[in-house]
Nucleic acid binder design. Sequence first.
DNA 1: TTGACAACCAAGCGCTTGCTTGTTTTTATG
DNA 2: CATAAAAACAAGCAAGCGCTTGGTTGTCAA
Lengths: 203, 203
Amino acid sequence: MSEALATTDLPSLPLGPISPAKARILAVAVDLFYERGYERTTVRDIAERAGILSGSLFHHFKSKQEILFTAMAATTQAMGEAAVAATEGVDDPRGALRALMIAELSAIHREDGHAAYVLVDEWRSLDTEHRAAILKLRDGAYERAWRDTLDALGVKGRLRNNPRIARQLIRGALAWSRHWMREDGPLDLASLADEVLKTFVSD
Amino acid sequence: MSEALATTDLPSLPLGPISPAKARILAVAVDLFYERGYERTTVRDIAERAGILSGSLFHHFKSKQEILFTAMAATTQAMGEAAVAATEGVDDPRGALRALMIAELSAIHREDGHAAYVLVDEWRSLDTEHRAAILKLRDGAYERAWRDTLDALGVKGRLRNNPRIARQLIRGALAWSRHWMREDGPLDLASLADEVLKTFVSD
DNA sequence: TTGACAACCAAGCGCTTGCTTGTTTTTATG
DNA sequence: CATAAAAACAAGCAAGCGCTTGGTTGTCAA
């Protein structure tokens, strides 16, 4: 189950507070979306794993789509806070970039939850209107931290690419790791971050 | 419609020949999978766009899943052939890598078809057994070309990473371009390939 | 012209889907 | 203990799903 969603007291989202019961539903839903994808997961699947009947879900969420949106919003917010926290107090931009990459990789590969995975893989399952809300939320903290860090490296002339391009290339490279990196493989997250670092950052 | 699938005479797949009628169905199916995703596309949608009734689909394919598989197999084979053709006659490994990247980007971004996009995005919609078949097909030509090229660069000491890691990082970086690169944007495919090239290849 | 086969139509079957409704149980509060 | 709100149940509806069946049309070689 996704730990970030299973904790009992979550920070209030723009959507309103998340009760323990809601958090439990979100956690098992994320697991199922990860295992089977959004469309192949039924509300009955979610309810069963949450220990209730399917109809009872709609006491907490007004639709299946709202479950996906709420989960994604919570993930986005958590990742934003983690990114800000990771770079806090780190002065050199190279170290900050390393911290951001490790934070992103940790979110993708954490053993106890696949919320970041779902955020990428089920993006197309989210309604157009909801997508805009997530993007706005993401841009406020998460992308801002990345932009600031890469721009700082850029003005120092230590990036091999334009900062905007570098961001997209790095994001893709890190995101793809979910398809080939194994927990028990020879490469851990920090090592992968270092690999990317030495590729994109010169000196 | 996807051009590679719309042409009337296709090379025979391991599955058997593809008639013009089948090719038309595959082409519109790929378009729909791209637009809505596999699960949200119904056999009625496919049939309507192909100009037939839904039941008639099953004269050509025994299931919706077989449509997806056949389309992916055809794409994989076409990409493999394109990769081999792109590196043929190119002696220096740097030039070969550039050619491979442009081939991959072209497949992803071609205006007249989204088969390569679907191959990545709907991978999880493919049955487990079918996945193995595609992977085998892919490994025969496509990945082989990449491996040979990167290994050649590696032994020359011109890669900043281990060739295996470089392959995965580059693949992710290129695949992600479908989410941010615009046809009418400032960056064309060759320029993006050059950006990646100067990042991963030294000297 | 005829026979054979491929392509397609027309209709619908059996099942699953997200969600609703009305009722009952649980929980928290005075 | 009384009461109200929150949470869950029980049952099922309407719509949509992949796919099947049986018959009709089109094509082309013999």
